[in-house]
């Protein structure tokens, strides 16, 4: 199915490829550390060089997330964040930046709002793509239909144990990019990765044959890891918990925290430039 106009995520990947760069996708938890500062955090990531921003809408029971994002979600919820307020955060970022925005949330948040209503509302607030970690290809007919109507990129996830046959089917429906979960496990920084991660990247990259860009996420926090994954075939890397850890551990006030965010984004972005 061809699009009337190029979606911002596709355009971003096309521009990056022309410059022989890979994409850095940065993740924030909307409402963490609070509603206002999460906008500053997003801006700091963008200033540091993030190519695509992923905005997590907190859910009370985030089964794909490790302790760091669980704690951040819990804090954000206890400070009163709602899906509507999270989308307002997206809108204010959209007001100052043209970086493509993707939202990540669990299916119950989408289902409760009404699938089509949620997608349409997200689009109105400047969201270009949607990631739902507990919505698989098999249950996604309604979400695919709604996303198509509203020109939203519905981004699917695959894992190291996803079969070739299933990968093929998922690659056919995933828009914007395909999200490979790098590890067996939940989100959260890791000291090391095993060979199976790189094997999975190579296998998925070979199978999708350029249909859609390949993003790899979960556990990546260091530029060395990012490099190896991009060398294996990742078109983008997603970093979340490493940023949230900076916020969580900051003791010297907001400004120095934002500097830390900006520096990490910058450092990771440098790693995505092949000839840097």
């Amino acid at each position: 199915m061809s699009r009337k106009k190029e979606n911002p995520i596709d355009r971003r990947f096309r521009e990056l490829m022309a410059r022989e760069e890979h994409a850095l996708i940065g993740y924030i938890v909307a409402g963490y550390p609070d509603e206002h500062v999460s906008v500053d955090v997003a801006q700091a990531m963008i200033d540091g060089g993030v190519d695509i921003l992923e905005i997590g809408i907190p859910f009370s029971d985030p089964i794909a997330d490790g302790p760091t994002i669980q704690r951040a979600s819990y804090t954000a919820l206890s400070k009163g964040i709602t899906p509507n307020k999270a989308l307002e955060i997206a809108r204010s970022i959209r007001g100052t930046s043209d970086v493509p925005l993707v939202t990540m949330t669990y299916y119950n948040i989408v289902y409760r709002a009404g699938i089509e209503r949620f997608v349409s509302m997200a689009k109105d607030h400047g969201i270009d793509g949607l990631i739902v970690p507990d919505l698989t290809y098999d249950e996604a007919d309604d979400a695919i239909r709604a996303s198509h109507i509203h020109d939203m990129d519905l981004i699917f996830l695959v894992a190291p144990n996803t079969s070739d046959e299933r990968l093929n089917r998922v690659a056919n429906v995933s828009k914007g990019f395909l999200y490979l979960v790098s590890v067996y496990g939940t989100t959260g920084e890791r000291d090391k990765f095993y060979d199976y991660t790189l094997d999975a990247i190579r296998r998925v990259k070979g199978l999708i044959m350029g249909r859609v860009p390949l993003a790899v996420g979960f556990g990546i926090s260091r530029k060395e890891h990012a490099r190896v994954m991009m060398d294996a075939g990742a078109d983008a890397i997603v970093v979340g918990s490493a940023f949230i850890n900076i916020i969580e551990k900051s003791k010297d006030g907001k400004e120095s925290m934002l500097i830390g965010i900006r520096q990490l984004a910058y450092e990771l972005k440098q790693a995505t430039r092949r000839f840097a």
């Binding site: 507990d134 249950e139 996830l157």
Partner: peptide
């Protein structure tokens, strides 16, 4: 019913 889980659990 159905299966609303992360993709990693589908093969399992």
């Amino acid at each position: 019913g159905g299966r609303y889980v992360p993709e990693t659990l589908i093969p399992a």
